[in-house]
Amino acid sequence: MQKIESLNNIAHENLKVNPEFSAELGDNLVSTVTFITEFSEVQKEYPILCRKDPETGEYQAIVFFGLQKDENLFLTEAEPSSQKYVGWRAEYVPAALARGPFSIGAQRDADEGAQGQKPVVHIDMSHPKASCDRGRALFLENGGHSPYLNYITNVLDTINEGIHLTKHMFNALNKYELIEPVTLDIEFVDQSKLTINQFETVNTDKLSQLSGDALEGLNKSGFLQAAYYMATSMSNVRKLIDWKNRKLSAGGDAN
């Protein structure tokens, strides 16, 4: 059960959070949501697809870490001296995973009256990365934010700003019917086969055939570049296949 608390430098003065990545810490996810505010970094490392949220019916951008349930091919043995993010083999970790036990909540702002609210950082004290004896400190001795907490704040800003912008992006792409279903038929070195469907991607042919005014509008909003980021990120599927094939060839468990 979650134990959510509003983060502050008094109650959490000595709190430390484990910044590493591992299956034991809850990072063995095959995918998570991603946001337009981080597409420029995400597309360098991961495939980005999209699908409708079954609860809201709204489109979400999804980043893949593996090809099957509970498979995260980006998790690796911890080598602090050679990894930017310990336990993770990439130069960027998508915000929804990087945030760990942290989230954004709302708090009433006394200066703005009863209607005024401001975003504040919350922490789930039951999360496996929340610890009092090891990890990164959140606050400095004088009560200020540590570099790690500043990083987490930026991660949460990426999510908070990205939620609304990503919704507007999908509204624009759907206006021009640029989203289409995609099926990935994969065969591995051990001759096992896998089909991934129920996801969608950007139709670049339709995108290139849009009128000048439509392209200009998408470009001004930043959605044109985002659409191409989504399309070109699909080349990263091959990386995931290669990584899994290497494990299979070595006789290891690819999960």
Rank of each mutant, 00 (worst) to 15 (best):
M1Q: 13
E5V: 06
S6D: 15
L7C: 08
L15P: 03
L25R: 12
G26Q: 05
L29I: 14
V30N: 05
F35V: 07
K44I: 10
Y46C: 06
P47D: 11
I48R: 00
E58M: 05
Y59H: 13
Q60G: 06
A61W: 00
F65P: 02
Q68K: 06
D70F: 14
E71G: 09
E71F: 04
P80Y: 07
S81A: 05
K84R: 14
Y85N: 12
R89L: 02
V93E: 00
S103P: 02
I104A: 03
R108C: 05
Q115P: 04
Q115M: 15
G116F: 04
K118F: 09
K118S: 08
P119R: 15
H122T: 09
M125D: 09
K129T: 12
A130M: 14
A130N: 10
C132H: 13
D133E: 15
R134V: 14
R134F: 08
G135S: 08
H145R: 11
S146T: 06
P147K: 09
Y148M: 10
T153Q: 13
N154P: 12
N154Q: 15
N154W: 09
V155M: 04
E161W: 11
G162D: 02
H164E: 05
F170E: 00
A172C: 08
A172S: 12
Y176P: 03
V182H: 03
Q191H: 15
Q191N: 06
N197C: 08
V202Q: 01
N203R: 13
S208Q: 15
S211M: 10
S211L: 10
G212Q: 13
A214N: 06
G217V: 05
K220P: 01
L224T: 00
A226N: 01
Y228Q: 01
Y229S: 14
A231L: 03
M234Q: 07
M234L: 05
S235N: 15
N236Y: 05
L240H: 11
I241R: 06
W243H: 05
W243Q: 13
N245Q: 08
R246A: 10
R246S: 14
L248W: 03
A250P: 11
G251H: 15
G252D: 09
